[in-house]
Each structure stands twice: as structure tokens, then as C-alpha cells.
Amino acid sequence: MVKKKAALTILSEVFLLLATAILWIPIYYFFIGAFKTRTDIVNFPLAIKPSMITLDNFVYTFTKMKFFSALKNTGIITVVALVAIVVFASMAGFAIARIDRKLFKFIYSALITLMVIPFIGTVIPLVVQSVEIKTYNTLLGGILIQVGWNLPFAVFLYTGFMRGIPKEMEESAYIDGCSMYRMYAQIFLPLLAPVTATCLIRCGIGIWNDYLVSKSILNDAVTPTLMVTIHSFFGERRTEYGYAFAGIIAASLPIVMTFVSFQKYFIKGLVAGAVKG
């Protein structure tokens, strides 16, 4: 009986590992492909030998693809948007969680409802709007849209977190004459580290990986972002697989590194957004 059970466990584990291996074939393929020449990618797609390894693809990507200007643009958009999201969403979440009024409840429900709207459904008026307010083809335009579209989810996260903080703590502070502003800055902000980590990771990955906002609002050569640059570069040189693979690795590295270091917060954020949203 025990032996049979162990055999079954090992069998199911072998199946799982096999499925995992199949899942990882594309990743393995593009990862080793980035270090091979085009001929080797085509002729020996899944093999790698020390004699094949070359860094030419990376050199080409970094010099010819305008990689660093795209990296700078994506970096600026991501960092500025994240700072704005965290500051505004924590303020809004604080107000909604702590003031027991119909108006605030209504605003909260309205914001939650906005999480449903698909971005592509409003892309046409957004482009018209960005031309009108002169943010078309500027980083500011991209930042504003990212902040606006990420705020509902971020407010949802912060409100949920702050509702879990006991009220007694602030009541004593109010009795001592503490104002709402000081309360937010000195008592709440330090407590928010876990939810802020979740929010940064969840919104950060979306903004860094974004293609559609950049493609429609920043579609000029002046302010390309990473994903748009790689995409259009691949479109121009459809047959140079190695360049595309090298670009993909370089552009995805920051996200992968964050995932590896903060896996716990990552998974927590994903579950929080999905189960209650």
C-alpha cells in the first residue's frame, strides 16, 4: 500500500515535471537563441554548444535599436507613474476607509466600477484628448494615462488594507488633537509598507510591459518605449530572430529580477486583485 502510494506520487510528479518542461520550451528557446547566430537558431533550434555562443545579438540590440533611449522612457514613465499612484491612492484609500459617509462610499463604488472598463474601448477618444491637451507624443501624456488607469485598482488595494487597521489607534490620536493630515503622514504611511509593495509590483509590471498606451499615445520616434521599440524593430527585421530575442531578454530583465526577489508580495497582489475585484 505504502509502496503503491509512493509509486503513484512519483508518477504524478513525473507528469508534472514533463508538463513544466513543455511549458518552458519557448523560454528556453528564446533564451539560448539570444546567444546564437541566426543560422544556428534555424538549424539547431533547441541545442546549445559553447562554440555557438556569441554576444553579437546583444551588441547589435544595444547599439542599433536605440535600446537605451527606450529604456530611459519606459523607466521615467514607470517610476513617475508609480510614485503618483502610491501617493494619490493611499490618500484616497485613507479618506474612503476612515470617513463613514455616503458620499465616500458612493465614490468608492464608482472607482471600483471603473476597474471593469477595457482600455482599448476608450483608446480613440484618449488619442483625440491627448492631442487637444497637448500631451500627445510626450512622456507626460503616457504617465497621466497610466496613473488614471491604475488608480482605481490601487485605491481598491489601499482601502481594503486600511479598513483592516484598528480604529482605536487613531481615536486616541484625535483626542490628543492630531489633524487628519498628520494622522495620514505620521500614523498611516509607515503602516502601509506591505500594501505599497503589492501595489508597486502589480501596477509596475503592467506599466513596464505596456504596449497599447505607448503605441497609441507615444507612437512617434521621439518617445518610444521598450515594448514598442522591440515590436517595431522586430517588424522591420522579421528574420533576424537573435536580435529580437536579445531585445526581449534585456527588456524583461527588470521585471524578472523583481519577481525573483519579491515573489511573496507578487503572488499576494495578484490574488488580492482577482478575488475581490
Binding site: F88, A92, F94, A95, I107
Partner: peptide, 25 residues
């Protein structure tokens, strides 16, 4: 009043870049 002030940035940004395009579309 403090709460409303706290909400203003969120309301402006979501209003301008989510609600307005939604109505416009």
C-alpha cells in the same frame, strides 16, 4: 473636508482619463 481634499487628485485623474473618454466614446 480633509477627506475630499485627499480624494481630489484621484477624482481628477480618473475623471479626465477614464470617465471622460468613456463618455466621449
Amino acid at each position: 473636508i480633509a477627506g475630499i481634499l485627499f480624494l481630489i487628485p484621484t477624482l481628477i485623474l480618473c475623471g479626465m482619463f477614464v470617465v471622460w473618454p468613456l463618455i466621449t466614446v
